[in-house]
Write a protein that binds this DNA or RNA. Structure first.
Length: 463
DNA sequence: TGAAATGTTGGGGCG
DNA sequence: ACGCCCCAACATTTC
């Protein structure tokens, strides 16, 4: 028997999947078997990224169900990719391996090694535009978002979404497979392509129209909450882009159009940071800008811990951090506020925050996460200038005006009235008693005073 | 995809 | 009618 491998990495879907499409063509042409393969590589796992790992496992189970409906099944192996592929290639006379290109340094190195020994075909599917196709006229990569996005939009659309197959060649019956352990699903984010498509539909039929403003409101569901699905390719970026563009073409209201355009821009931000990582893999180890590689960071285990656990005494920071801890996701506005707080107010190295986020975000992706952190720290490409320091109280008042979001995640504050919800330490003892919340006991006092912390950060960055 | 400090303007109160 | 002050409301600059 001869076979073709569809090597699944972060493209857990059958709709609009160029790697699957390529594998099907190759299998059909010669009547070969098709092996849908996922390799769990322990080296790829962040030490504490259990929530994301479970989301992936649930996604693999969902994919397996889809494959079984098409007459196939998912094969899962655990170990070193090259070793496993070598063995399969030999055992099942594999003629070709199709996979979607990944741009992380680890994946690039792994794939180039494999390509030296095995017939690995890499196709573009993780992004709409391959990082090598968006370059300045002198051939160097963009390091500023706006010109990058203009160039991105100027390139004609290369391909339209590919249809999902309606049947698949069976995979060899005797192939050994690691059992997918039963996983507890994440109730906030059910894994799988079906759920991803449902969310995209819902988002495109409502929230996206007011996304320009709505995306900033932490107390409302104004965002797409699609990031975990894009992270694992349960949703194709090409498909998301096309559907958003279709909605845009049928929308004439200025506000609604700007909402759609803003969301499309977010897809481009994702590709911007993937491109940055592709061209500058060193960003995972150091600041993009050399002049910010020697900031005199503080090391305070206690402060870092308070930040991680959502016990800083600043409600908007703590609510966001608890949202991350308990749901595996954080609102984008929350990401900016908590990141600014760690890096500027606590003056703790952005890499500690990057690591914590990677350990807890379902959508944790090296490119976007690193890009976001370096943006906030002011050390990255097209980054916020170092003196741009978020005031957590003002941010809270602006983006959670009634404190509903805060109360949802910090039960200790549920009886605190609106006028104090953003800065509960201002309550006098009577008011604290009335709110059933003693500051310093039921809910922590602020671990830093923002005004002083701001001055300290400005001084450190100037130096 | 900031916030604070500083500067400018203009209306209103008042002598 | 006028000058002066206060201060809110913006605008600009600075961090």
């Amino acid at each position: 028997m001869q076979a073709i491998i569809w090597w699944i990495r972060r493209d857990l879907r059958i709709g609009d999947n160029p790697a699957l499409y390529g594998a099907i063509q190759a299998a059909l042409a010669n009547g070969r078997a098709l092996i849908p393969l996922f390799i769990e590589d322990p080296k790829l796992w962040h030490a504490t990224a259990t929530p994301r790992q479970q989301f992936l496992h649930a996604g693999l189970q969902a994919l397996n169900q889809q494959l079984q409906l098409l007459g196939s099944r998912l094969v899962v192996c655990r170990g070193d990719a090259l070793a496993i592929l070598k063995q399969l290639v030999e055992e099942y006379s594999v003629h070709a391996i199709y996979a979607e290109e990944d741009y992380s340094p680890y994946a690039q190195q792994r794939d180039s090694r494999i390509r030296n020994e095995l017939p690995l075909h890499l196709v573009t599917g993780l992004v709409v535009r391959h990082p090598l196709t968006i370059l300045k006229s002198d051939g160097t990569p963009y390091t500023v978002f706006t010109p990058f996005s203009k160039a991105w939009k100027a390139v004609p659309i290369k391909r339209i979404p590919l249809p999902a197959p309606d049947s698949l060649a069976p995979s060899p019956a005797d192939i050994s497979c690691v059992d997918l352990a039963a996983v507890q699903g994440n109730s906030n984010f059910p894994a799988g392509e079906t759920e991803a498509n449902k969310r995209l539909e819902n988002f495109l039929h409502g929230p996206i129209l007011s996304y320009a403003e709505g995306r900033n409101r932490m107390d409302l569901d104004g965002t797409s909450s699609l990031s975990p699905y894009l992270r694992f390719g349960m949703l194709s970026a090409v498909q998301a882009y096309h559907q958003a563009q279709n909605v845009l073409n049928q929308t004439f209201d200025t506000t609604e159009r700007s909402g759609i355009e803003t969301w499309i821009n977010e897809l481009i931000w994702r590709e911007f940071y993937l491109s940055i990582l592709y061209h500058f893999p060193n960003v995972l180890k150091e600041a993009f800008q050399p002049k910010y590689r020697n900031i005199p960071w503080r090391t305070s285990q206690a402060d870092l811990h308070a930040w991680q656990q959502g016990c800083t005494g600043y409600p908007i920071v703590d609510a966001s951090m608890r949202q991350l801890l308990h749901s595996g996701w954080m609102h984008n506005r929350g990401r900016m506020i908590t990141a600014s707080f760690l890096v500027k107010d606590l003056l703790i190295n952005w890499q500690a925050g990057e690591d914590w986020f990677m350990g807890h975000l379902l959508d944790g992706d090296p490119a976007s996460n690193n890009g976001g952190w370096q943006w906030t720290a002011g050390t990255g490409t097209d980054a916020a200038p170092y003196f741009r320091i978020f005031n957590p109280i003002l941010q809270s008042k602006k983006f959670d005006p009634l404190g509903d979001f805060i109360r949802r995640w910090i039960p200790e504050l549920k009886n605190v009235p609106v006028r104090y919800i953003h800065e509960p330490w201002l309550m006098n003892p009577q008011e604290q008693a009335a709110a059933n919340c003693t500051i310093g006991k039921d809910y922590p006092s602020p671990i830093v005073e923002h005004g002083a912390a701001r001055e300290r950060a400005l001084q450190a960055y100037r130096a």
